[in-house]
Design a protein around this nucleic acid. Structure first.
Lengths: 144, 144
DNA sequence: TTGTGACGGTATATTTTGTAACTATCAAGG
DNA sequence: CCTTGATAGTTACAAAATATACCGTCACAA
């Protein structure tokens, strides 16, 4: 009939997101026993350097309760250290411990490899289009 | 630091998917009190015409238990009719009732409008690139 | 026929997630 | 100081997602 759903952008993005996630999840799950929110928080802190939980929320687009729980789990593992923020006592400064950095480092390689494997299925021109389009959409819909 | 995440495709897609979903969810939620799986099943049946639950699963990329519950909820509302399939008595033929079609019709407008509103923030060339890139990625990672 | 494995769909149980409420802190004004 | 309202983060509880087991039916072959 109308095929509305197939052309509806939020639906298409969700479907692609799920499919891609499925491709990479085994890596952080089987290699280090991480859940997706945990992996994301780990990577966000690695990207940001010392930061607050709120910054992790914004950077990774995850709900604060999800981040709160992931930070707890990661700190139990001694992969994330929580220090008081002297400038704002409501918040904490999150950093990766050395073990956390090592854990993160072991993931980047396999994850990048898997991503490359998937992207290489695209023709170069399509790949360029994808990256350009995504960057534009990010600029349009993600407030920072 | 490394900014690995910013360029990691699964992460970027998930972030965009979340953001877009957040933009459109209020429409079907506040307008008709639908959950996301329910809205998707409604749209899938509208797209497909008379179909089975399995076809809805494939078309909408949702787990069969999710579809089962959504179909139940929609049939309670008399938006979806369930008829026995004479050719395979395990399955049922799902169709939209007139009320279901009206409900669907009231959603398409606002949803399309919201989508257009977001997409129109992009330059035409970026928009073309996005659609081209997404189509290519879909072909590459979604097995049908 | 009857046995076997697969499939459509549902029910149940476990896990995950979001909503809302709460504590503690901050910032700005009176 | 002492309001008032906002923010950082946690937690309790309700809602949702997911996996698992299950029932009835089908396809097909011994």
């Amino acid at each position: 009939m109308t095929a509305f759903l197939q052309n509806f952008l939020p639906y298409r993005l969700n479907r692609l997101s799920e499919a891609m996630s499925l491709q990479v999840r085994p890596i952080y799950k089987e290699l280090l026993g991480l859940t997706r929110p945990e992996w994301r928080v780990l990577a966000a802190i690695a990207d940001l350097g010392p930061c607050s939980a709120t910054e992790v929320c914004d950077h990774s687009a995850q709900h604060k309760t999800k981040v709160s729980r992931a930070v707890y789990a990661l700190s139990e593992r001694r992969w994330v250290a929580r220090a008081p923020d002297t400038r704002d006592r409501r918040s904490e400064v999150l950093t990766l411990t050395e073990a956390g950095q090592r854990a993160y480092a072991t993931l980047i390689g396999p994850l990048s490899a898997r991503e490359a494997e998937l992207i290489e299925r695209l023709a170069p021109a399509d790949r360029d289009a994808l990256l350009r389009g995504l960057a534009a959409l990010e600029a349009a819909v993600l407030r920072r």
